[in-house]
Design a binder for these strands. Structure first.
Lengths: 344, 344
DNA sequence: TTGTATGCGTTATCAA
DNA sequence: TTGATAACGCATACAA
């Protein structure tokens, strides 16, 4: 494996010239640069990682702590891990994976051994054991998700409140007067992340602000959980004509089946919106309007913030990623509505 | 951050003594060792990763290339990633994650920059672009999964053939004469890994060896795919009394519903076995007998093999992990059978 | 049993 | 614009 001395020899220059030519940190004559470039090509030279780490201030490695909890939805989780890795590569950074059982110890280990330059914390729980650790670390850290107490931390997350309001507004603007929210199973609200709460509260509050009747149901775990929850939502007494689903893929699919069984065709008898979904709702039947949870949006920001923090101290902050909206025709005015309700 | 000089100074010894005391590569007097230990404690010393990489022959990092393809089942994928990371930590190794778009270039990059000591290749496809790369690499590599041409490679995988035979034997020994296999969707057999083929072939062949009628069905993708496949399997003409399911979780769950809808209670009217499943079938209704796909089994072996390969050249080989079996009462003799059929 | 000295490959400082 | 050289922190061959 060629090293910088080999390149210098072949190019007929000194190693420092090679180093500077490659880093671009000082100007090099065109002639010298091209000689170095050909030598690099010829030898297939890549800087030795250890040497670079030791001499430079950077390891070019980011730690990614991504615990896989029992109630973690694996596909979404994977999407975030991948999005972080992809974003990091754009800055010439690699990702070192820390697992659940290494959550706190692993963070201390890779930081005090100076293995990593920064940390991305995924799947942040309300009361997360990793929070106290990273708060006391001098290593730049960005959380994807918001803990119960974000004091002193840099956090990035989808703006779930805005997403919820967007749901409500979409329904209200289409003329619906009574809307439903199919949420996650109860266990998800009892522990873990706080985004389910943020979404639900904002949904209910904004529904009130828009003068809508709103019903919230959680699917129980088990065979009939979703079906029962859907039946409650569709209870004729409530008169719900639009439902937002903020739960994982398999539950949304089951809910769609139940809507069909209940004789509600979409969007004529029922408007349906898939909220903060990390999966593809275009292949559902029918394809659903969706406010997608785009992993890349949050992760790009998170990595960019870590990179900023590497260059100098960064103020604690919470960066909320604005929601997007992809219409696919699963939301329509309710039956009998002549026109959309005016915005307030 | 304390370095080895600090520890040496506090302990009143030379840095080489500290280094040897920590690595255990030469004997140290009890007195000196304890002085060093307290100094390490007091200073919270951890060896600088870059220094260790540069001076030693080892980086203590393994590359993990784990592409997430469209037809990848994310939960299983995650389980393998985690299992590799956990196994690596036992050898004081960390995992560097290489993503799909970095598949080949990333491998070249991390090896020629000497960032990693070895490579674990996950989710190996029959015709995998990474194969040619790792074959030409001097970096120790172990594949989890078996490519079309495993020449010159070190591979680890569950013994899917043995698992299939175990299914057949379980059914045959219980007295069943006609058995079914619910496989993956067609797309899975058309591209990607070869384990679905290995399982199916062995299942069909061994059924013949045991004198059983065997029916194979693939669920089409789409709303009624699984249901149709199940209906085919349960076609009265075939007289199938036992079904093995070798497909992902959601499909197995839907199949269970369909069995119920068809009026087949488990195990009285139908014996069911979940084969090579990476998920928990104990919470299914009913809980299913399972031949689990234990990620840790394969990944522990894979990591151990890489570690061996680090110490010296290792012969190419295919290491097959024997299947396990967890009975839960979902397999029983067929209705009307007086006793299990004798083994041949 | 312990200490000294060298080298690992790079970056960065200083000098030219 | 370029070159010589001193760190960086550790492991290890060699000396004692």
């Amino acid at each position: 494996m060629a090293n910088i001395h080999d390149v210098a020899r072949v190019a007929g220059v000194s190693i420092s010239t090679v180093s500077y030519a490659l880093s671009g940190k000082r100007s090099i004559s065109e002639k010298t640069r091209s000689r170095i470039d050909s030598a690099v090509q010829e030898l297939g030279y890549l800087p030795n990682a250890a040497g670079r780490m030791l001499a430079g201030a950077r390891t070019h490695i980011l730690a990614l702590t991504a615990p896989l909890r029992a109630d973690t939805y694996a596909p979404a989780h994977m999407a975030f891990v991948l999005a972080v890795a992809t974003a990091a590569r754009r800055f010439d950074y690699d990702i070192l994976l820390l697992t659940e059982d290494e959550a706190t110890l692993g963070l201390q280990r890779v930081t005090s051994s100076r293995l990593v330059d920064g940390i991305i914390v995924l799947d942040v729980a309300i009361d997360d054991e990793r929070i106290d650790v990273v708060r006391n670390l001098s290593t730049p850290t960005v959380l994807v998700g918001i803990p119960g107490d974000p004091t002193g931390l840099i956090c990035v997350d989808l703006d779930f409140e805005a997403a919820a309001r967007l749901c409500v507004d979409t329904f209200a603007d289409a003329g619906h007067r009574a809307v439903g929210l199919l949420g996650h199973p109860p266990a998800v609200y009892e522990r873990g992340s706080n985004f389910p709460h943020r979404f639900r509260s904002a949904f209910m509050e904004h529904a009130q602000e828009r003068g809508l009747e709103a019903t919230f149901e959680m699917p129980r775990t088990g065979p009939q959980g979703v079906e029962d929850a859907v039946d409650e939502l569709l209870n004729p007494a409530a008169g719900v004509t639009a439902v937002a689903m903020h739960c994982e893929e398999s539950l949304q699919i089951r809910a769609l089946s139940r809507f069909a069984e209940a004789g509600r065709s979409i969007p004529d008898d029922l408007s349906v919106l898939s909220a903060c979904s990390s999966f593809d709702t275009s292949s559902f039947s029918p394809p659903l309007d969706v406010i997608p949870l785009v992993a890349a949006d949050s992760c790009d920001s998170a990595v960019a913030l870590v990179m900023q923090a590497l260059d100098g101290p960064l103020e604690p902050r919470i960066e909320l990623v604005p929601p997007r909206f992809t219409p696919r025709g699963s939301v329509a005015p309710p039956r009998g509505a002549n026109r959309p309700a005016p915005a307030p």
